[in-house]
Nucleic acid binder design. Structure first.
Length: 272
DNA sequence: ATGGTGACCTGACCGC
DNA sequence: TGCGGTCAGGTCACCA
């Protein structure tokens, strides 16, 4: 499910929990990508002071330290009233003051819910990540420099979290379409002009998707349980064998790095 | 170092 | 209605 815009949508929607105290922690199923440690129970009695996002990770600050949440492929964080019965796959419940309940829901259990303590910046999950796409540290020159030695397809390159964080399968496909670049182009063949175009497009598309509350294909819901609306303007993702919205030719499907990759052979031609 | 593949897990959907 | 196959928004360990 969630790429950067969906995670940011979740973060913005959780602002009402700031300042609230965790009354109790209920771990209903600890089997996530990494086991949920009993340390998480330390959250009881702590106030939620701040929520940051780094890539697709959400970082929650409390008085005694930080905990991290990753939504994996199918995860969501939802604010419910405490009286509501937990749903299937609601794995972790944080009962808050004022009768609310913050619920981590994740059918496929690829997500993470980890206690970090004081070591936020230095955690191995966070130290090797590339720049934030919407920050000043992400530049065309950065893309150009890293791509010089890489033969992998440009689609895999922009989805690599060491290159730039937060670009998943949907937004990678859309970025390459708007940039007019074939998804299989070897990364080292990108020109500085290509990199400038990719840089601008990534920022524009992620920004637009955040404004529309993210993309809902099957099951993404924000913290209030509502879907996003960016899917209404997808140009290629999920549209294989349909016609290109620009040129009218048929869109094609490839598998790149094990991920389905739709593109327009006319708008994104193979280069000579 | 780099790149390709499988693994993790459940649910939805399709064709028979 | 049921069954088996396939696919899904992410990430990492493993191998060549």
């Amino acid at each position: 499910m969630p790429e950067l815009p969906e995670v940011e949508t979740t973060r913005l929607g959780l602002k009402p929990v700031l300042g609230q105290t965790v009354c109790s922690v209920n771990i209903r199923n600890p089997s996530l990508r990494l086991p949920v440690s009993a340390e998480i129970s330390q959250l009881a009695g702590q106030s939620l002071l701040e929520i940051r996002r780094r890539g697709k990770y959400l970082l929650f600050r409390t008085e005694s330290g930080w905990f991290l949440v990753h939504l994996g492929m199918s995860g969501s964080l939802r604010l419910a009233v405490a009286a509501e019965a937990p749903r299937k796959h609601d794995h972790i419940l944080l009962e808050l003051s004022e009768g609310l309940s913050l619920r981590f829901h994740d059918p496929r259990r690829f997500g993470l819910f980890l206690w970090l303590g004081g070591a936020v910046e230095s955690h191995p999950l966070l130290t090797t990540m590339g720049p934030e796409p919407l920050s000043d540290s992400f530049t065309a020159e950065h893309l150009f420099k890293l791509s010089r030695t890489r033969s992998i397809p440009v689609k895999s390159f922009i989805m690599d979290n060491h290159v730039v964080v937060g670009v998943g399968n949907i937004y990678a496909a859309e970025t390459l379409f708007y940039s007019g670049i074939h998804p299989l182009l070897p990364s080292r063949n990108l020109s500085i002009t290509d990199c400038a175009l990719l840089h601008t497009t990534i920022r524009h598309i992620l920004g637009q998707a955040i404004l529309r509350g993210g993309t809902t294909l099957r099951d993404f819901v924000n913290s209030a349980g509502n879907p996003g609306y960016f899917q209404q303007q997808l140009m290629v993702y999920g549209r294989e064998s349909k016609t290109c919205r620009i040129c009218g030719n048929q869109l094609h499907l490839l598998r790149i790095g094990g991920r389905s990759s739709v593109f327009c052979p006319s708008c994104q031609p193979v280069r000579p």
